[in-house]
Computed example of a mutant assay.
Amino acid sequence: MKRRVTQQDIAKELGLDKSTVSLALRNNPGIAKATLERVQGMADKLGYRPDPALSNLARQRWAGHETGSGAALAYLIDSRMANADQHRRFLDPARARAEGRGYLLHEFDLAEYSSMKAASRVLNHRGIRGLLVPQFAHTNGPSLFEMPAANFTVVCLDLGWVSVPFHIVAPDMFENTRRVWREVVNRGYKRIGGAILSHTPQAVDDAARYGASAASQHEFIPKKDRIPLLTTDHADRAGFMKWFERHEPEVVIAFISRVYDWILETGRRVPEDVAVASLSVFPDQTPEVSGVLRQVDNIGITGVDALIAAMHEHEWGIPTLQRKLSLEPIWYEGTSLPSKQV
């Protein structure tokens, strides 16, 4: 059998230390670009392929140092932002998953630093390479894009107001929306009102909700029975009330459970007078509302797995090919959407 080409072979050909070759093959940002290109070019020329057994052993050693402390990851928040209360939503399940995989996940508040570059220096000093980033609000202040991304492996959790170039783990909002429309139709409802709502400024997934709702109306609802989709801002209570009183739907497909509260404020009973199905359900907050789960735990857990996988593949900075890992819809059966089928 042909002998496997080793990193030592590459180092000998180039007159470099084996440690330099090892770092270059992992795209370490501390290695000069010219050296990276020389090493990787020679690796291709010699037909170098990593040894899976050795790679796995190295990963285990890296993930659990002799000190037992484990490799450190950071979960970024920014307490200055308007949606800061949502930043920690995925932290607990992510931390538990990280610890189960031999890593420590630390909360890291960007508000404590004068700039993203200053925050980056602290992260580097602490030896933190992997970053989990929840959805940040649209802001004219410090931006994630100001961070020297080449020094880190980054995975973003959920979709927000800012389009990011890093790998993303999020619910499949298009399929979530389609699932709710199908469920409502299959349970026998005819006059279906879609309170799809939107954000100001537009959120990344607003278009997916609207597109899936428009497609579902076209596919499932006869033209004469279609109610115009409500796409005003998600906090526009007055706009919703006007739309609701005008069209009197027998069921409302709501973007968020806030709409459920608005309906109750009109004096209607749910589900006796009007049924409700939500595109984003949090059972711990509104256990009675039926719809698709927001999957907070799954986002955090899957985000950690995706981050560790990217780190194992030595992915630094902005990936050449962005991966978007979409979680399939999971239905939650509350009490607000009884079947009308006989």
Rank of each mutant, 00 (worst) to 15 (best):
R126C: 11
Y260H: 09
D78F: 10
S326H: 12
E37L: 11
A53D: 10
R178W: 03
K33L: 13
N28S: 06
A98N: 12
P329E: 02
D78I: 05
G127F: 00
A207R: 14
Y332C: 05
A309C: 07
S79D: 12
R294I: 12
L110C: 03
V276C: 04
Q7P: 00
M311A: 01
A310Y: 05
A82E: 08
P287R: 10
Y48E: 03
L14N: 02
V252C: 09
E112V: 09
F240R: 04
G141A: 13
R49D: 00
I128L: 05
K223W: 15
S278C: 07
G160Q: 03
E66N: 12
L16C: 03
E288K: 08
A32T: 06
S213H: 07
K45E: 10
A235M: 13
R179L: 15
L14T: 10
R59Y: 04
A170R: 06
A96P: 04
P228E: 14
G188T: 06
L157M: 09
V292N: 07
L54V: 12
R237N: 13
R38L: 08
I263W: 09
W331P: 05
L76R: 01
H65L: 13
G30D: 10
L293K: 15
A235F: 11
A71M: 12
F136C: 08
N151P: 05
A214C: 12
W181F: 14
Q135C: 04
G194C: 00
S339H: 10
I196H: 04
G267I: 11
F282W: 13
Y210T: 13
F90M: 02
K324W: 01
K18N: 01
R49F: 12
F152D: 08
L105R: 06
N27Q: 00
E250I: 11
R88M: 15
L123I: 08
G291T: 00
R129S: 06
K190D: 08
L110Y: 02
L321W: 04
N83P: 07
Y260T: 00
A208G: 15
S257R: 12
D261W: 08
L229D: 01
G267N: 10
D206M: 08
L325G: 07
Y113W: 03
A235H: 14
D233R: 15
